[in-house]
């Protein structure tokens, strides 16, 4: 199969950047979208041109490293699927496919499709944990947790931190990412002692990083490769209010 790939090229953070279009041939339906980009890069390298830089690692949808906008959608047109899992059989033969980096104030472009997501790291450092030193934990079955609570916490904990929610949001908000962690830890008894402080600190850090606020577009939920629900955002708001009022 053959495709036209219209891809964002930007040499460095200061470059204004532009689209370039390339033809990729010999694509097979089983190929992932990133393998198709690998194929393009092999051609570019052999022609002495600079390859399209993009981030990826596990290539099975769990590490959250890959993150590109395909035809205007973060991770591409398929629901609940990362760019690395997306197969070329989802695209019509001969199509022109547009590929861009995640665009958001909180995610500056490093090169081509690679963005800097360190802001997420700083948000996590602002309380995205349950404080427990190694060695001081009681026996794991001391505290019983109802199955449905553990499952609900797991639904939130499934976030892979890719940032698609930010890229999809018209406000460039990181609310889905932040709320998934806030929710996981506020549902579980282990996270309860710090829940108010955590919600307040993480939300404030998100603001400092230049991410926008949530105004209920729900684009994040639609783009999330792990189907994290915007119910998490509602919970984060409650947690934030409770935390802000009790401190």
């Amino acid at each position: 199969m053959k495709y036209q790939i219209k891809v964002w090229r930007q040499k460095n953070p200061d470059d204004t950047g532009k689209f370039e279009t390339y033809t990729v041939e010999d694509v097979i339906p089983e190929m992932s979208f990133l393998e198709m980009l690998d194929l393009l890069n092999e051609q570019l390298i052999k022609r002495g041109e600079s390859p399209v830089e993009f981030d990826s690692d596990c290539r099975e949808g769990i590490c959250g490293t890959c993150g590109i906008v395909i035809d205007g959608m973060a991770h591409g047109p398929k629901r609940a699927c990362t760019a690395c899992e997306l197969r070329m059989r989802n695209f019509d033969e001969g199509a022109t496919i547009t590929v861009e980096p995640f665009r958001a104030r909180g995610f500056p472009v490093i090169k081509d499709l690679v963005v800097d997501r360190c802001a997420f790291e700083r948000i996590m450092a602002a309380g995205g944990y349950a404080s427990v030193n190694t060695g001081s934990a009681p026996d794991a079955n001391t505290m019983l947790i109802p199955k449905y609570i553990a499952e609900k916490a797991m639904d939130s904990a499934a976030c892979i931190g890719c940032g698609a929610c930010v890229a999809a949001c018209p406000n460039g908000s990181a609310s889905l990412f932040v709320s998934a962690k806030v929710t996981q830890l506020s549902l579980l008894p282990q996270g309860t002692p710090e829940r108010g402080r955590r919600a307040v600190r993480m939300v404030e850090q998100m603001d400092r990083e230049g991410f926008g606020n949530c105004s209920n577009h729900a684009e994040c939920e639609a783009a999330c490769p792990k189907s994290i629900s915007i119910e998490n955002i509602a919970r984060m708001r409650r947690e934030y209010m409770k935390g802000a009022l009790s401190d």
């Binding site: 944990y129 349950a130 427990v132 190694t134 060695g135 001081s136 934990a137 009681p138 026996d139 794991a140 079955n141 505290m143 019983l144 947790i145 109802p146 199955k147 553990a150 499952e151 916490a153 797991m154 904990a157 996981q184 830890l185 579980l188 282990q190 996270g191």
Partner: peptide
């Protein structure tokens, strides 16, 4: 024990045990 204390949501039985 350590992982549970950190909030790792391991699978559980209906009674709440791991």
């Amino acid at each position: 024990d350590q992982c549970v204390a950190q909030g790792v949501p391991f699978a559980r039985e209906y009674g709440g045990q791991l």
